[in-house]
């Protein structure tokens, strides 16, 4: 019983982290309809930047990620511009766009392998080895802190999307571009902002990742299925749905890992995804 409760709590913490990993895809795939399968590559890039700065300057990884946010925002804007000019403008985004992002994912991974090799890299920070104990419940800080910051980030994004003009325009761009034009907002510009934000979240998610576990370049691939499973289960464009789905997956994965062994955990996410696609493609909170 204690094992089960601990597994559920670990799953919730893991889920908070998964939410941060997924929110970028919820924006790009869910809202903008851009199938950015390269998102995990940007997350790994964020993790490696946190690693380099941590090793050379000794800066806290999450703080590094916050400082790197504008750079990732700019990177996202550039990637979107290339994508728009080459594919979206001509309405040929389906097959070639997918191949483009797949190539991007792959090139990033191989470049990281060439530069850093396939050794696992990790960061040092004061809180990584500490654990809070409440009775039999363990709360490792290396899970708790990413989870808390991640939830704060999602709350801020949700406020941004629902309260500000640009945020509402982002939500609207997936529904009716012409109407958006009539509101004097340029859909391309709005999409660029939204996509840039989605890549910016990868900076933070990457720093969480390297706080939680050691990272090597191909770790990102494990997250592709997870991220899309959560995104689809959450109903694509709903951020609260993303959080709920992420927590759910975190709990199921954590329970599987506790009771059946960690080698089965990856299949859980993908089984989840296949079942969702087969039986409830609209997701939990889908319209």
């Amino acid at each position: 019983m204690e094992l089960l409760i601990n597994a559920i709590i670990a799953g919730l913490l893991l889920g908070g982290f998964y939410a941060a990993v997924t929110v970028g895809v919820s924006i790009s795939f869910g809202i903008l309809d851009i199938v950015n399968i390269a998102h995990p590559a940007f997350i790994i890039l964020g993790a490696y930047i946190a690693y380099i700065v941590n090793q050379t300057l000794g800066l806290d990884p999450i703080l590094t990620a916050v400082i790197a946010l504008p750079a990732f925002y700019a990177l996202g804007a550039v990637v979107y511009q290339v994508y728009y000019q080459s594919f979206e403008k001509h309405g040929q985004d389906a097959l070639r766009g997918l191949a483009f992002f797949f190539g991007l994912l792959f090139v990033t991974e191989v470049l990281l392998i060439l530069v850093f090799g396939v050794d696992y890299r990790y960061v040092t920070a004061s809180y990584i080895d500490q654990t809070l104990h409440f009775g039999f419940v363990d709360l490792p800080l290396r899970m708790l802190i990413p989870c808390a910051i991640s939830l704060a980030m999602l709350a801020m994004l949700q406020l941004y999307l629902s309260r500000t003009f640009t945020g509402r325009a982002i939500m609207a761009v997936s529904q009716d571009q012409l109407a958006l034009r009539l509101m004097a907002a340029d859909p391309t510009k709005i999409k660029r902002i939204a996509f840039a934000i989605s890549i910016a979240t990868a900076s933070l998610a990457g720093s969480f990742l390297i706080v939680i576990q050691p990272v090597e370049p191909s770790v990102g691939r494990e997250y592709i299925g997870r991220v899309f499973a959560i995104c689809v289960l959450g109903g694509l464009q709903s951020l609260p749905g993303t959080v709920i789905a992420a927590m759910l997956l975190g709990i199921v994965e954590s329970i599987t890992a506790t009771f059946y062994g960690p080698s089965w955990a990856p299949a859980v996410a993908f089984g989840f995804l296949l079942l969702t696609l087969a039986f409830r493609p609209a997701g939990l909170l889908g319209r």
Binding site: F29, V35, I37, A94, L95, L98, R221, E222, I224, G225, F228, A229, V232, S263, W264, P266, A267, A269, F270, G271, L273, L274, L277, A278, P281
Partner: peptide, 23 residues
């Protein structure tokens, strides 16, 4: 399982399939 949905879902599902089989 997936071809009744939009094209992108099939692509994602095939990515997932590789990891399920590998596991």
């Amino acid at each position: 399982l997936t071809l009744r949905l939009r094209g992108a879902f099939f692509a994602i599902a095939t990515l997932a399939l590789a990891v399920v089989l590998q596991t």
